[in-house]
Simulated scan of single mutants.
Amino acid sequence: MVKIALFASGSGTNFENIMQRVEDGQLPNIEVTALYTDHENAKCIERARHFDLPVHINELNQFEDKRAYERKILDLLTTEQVDWIVLAGYMKLIGPTILSVYEGRILNIHPSLLPKYKGKDAIGQAFNSGDSETGTTVHYVDSGMDTGQIIEQSRCPILKNDTKEELENRVKSLEYELYPKVIARVIQ
């Protein structure tokens, strides 16, 4: 059994999608140890409770610095004997403290065709770009912002009469299919 920790900061739809697939047996041999979040009011917490999953809430402002923040997270990961970290909308850069132990074993999904549109509001950036397509990327996490080795991408057209919300919904649908497939292939 491979133990993974899911990290999320927001609504938690990718988190919920992964949890549902674990529960349904579509991601066999994976055990999710806990949800790690950096916001005490994040919606992903409610979703985790639906699955009776432990939740670790660590807000950066509770710690002396980012190193102490990551040391606390690393202590929890070590206690839970976590093999892999899977980011599902986690909005903090992973720093050297966690990378020193988990580099090469941290996955992230990003709503663009990296290397285009790194960082926040990638869908908005793509929508306003005039590009004819965007998509989603699963990649390994390294010390940069969305700069890790790309594992797989899925493309999505930007239609002439799209609204940003319509585009976001199509990209999310791609994420929900691509991420579990990559998790199964890479982690298992």
Rank of each mutant, 00 (worst) to 15 (best):
E152N: 12
F63D: 07
I123H: 08
E166G: 12
E103A: 08
L178S: 06
E166I: 05
I94C: 06
H50W: 07
V186N: 03
L74V: 10
R21K: 15
H39C: 12
V138W: 06
A184G: 08
I151Q: 07
K164T: 05
W84N: 07
I85E: 02
Y102C: 00
L113N: 01
V186G: 02
E168H: 09
V101Q: 14
L93I: 15
S154F: 10
V171F: 01
I18N: 04
D75P: 04
L76E: 14
T13N: 10
P96K: 15
D38V: 11
C44N: 08
D38Y: 11
T78Q: 11
F51N: 04
V138K: 10
S132K: 15
A48Y: 10
D24S: 13
V186S: 01
K160D: 03
G148H: 09
K118M: 10
E166H: 12
N61V: 11
T136W: 05
T79H: 08
E64R: 11
R21L: 14
Q26T: 01
E168A: 13
Q125W: 07
L60C: 05
S173L: 12
K43Q: 14
P111R: 01
A88G: 03
P111K: 00
T78H: 07
I183A: 09
N128Q: 13
E70M: 02
E80M: 04
G119A: 05
K172V: 06
R49W: 12
K66A: 07
G10W: 02
S112V: 02
L76V: 14
S129P: 04
D131A: 11
P28S: 11
Y176H: 15
K3F: 00
R49N: 15
S132T: 15
K92P: 00
S173C: 09
I45H: 05
A122R: 05
E16S: 11
R67D: 13
V55I: 06
A42S: 08
A8V: 04
A184W: 00
N161W: 05
L178D: 05
E46G: 10
T163L: 01
L107R: 04
G89Q: 08
G10D: 04
L35Y: 04
E103Q: 14
N58Y: 15
R67A: 13
H139T: 07
H50Q: 12
K92C: 00
G130F: 01
V32D: 05
M91F: 12
K160Q: 05
E168K: 08
P54Q: 03
K181N: 06
L87V: 09
C44F: 07
K181C: 04
R49Y: 13
S132D: 15
E168D: 10
D131M: 02
K92M: 12
V182F: 00
H50E: 09
I85K: 00
R47G: 03
V32R: 10
N169M: 12
A122Y: 01
K43E: 14
L174S: 06
Y176S: 02
L178H: 06
M1C: 07
Y179S: 07
I187E: 02
Y140R: 06
F15N: 03
R49S: 12
A68F: 09
D24W: 08
R105I: 03
L178A: 02
L107C: 06
I150V: 11
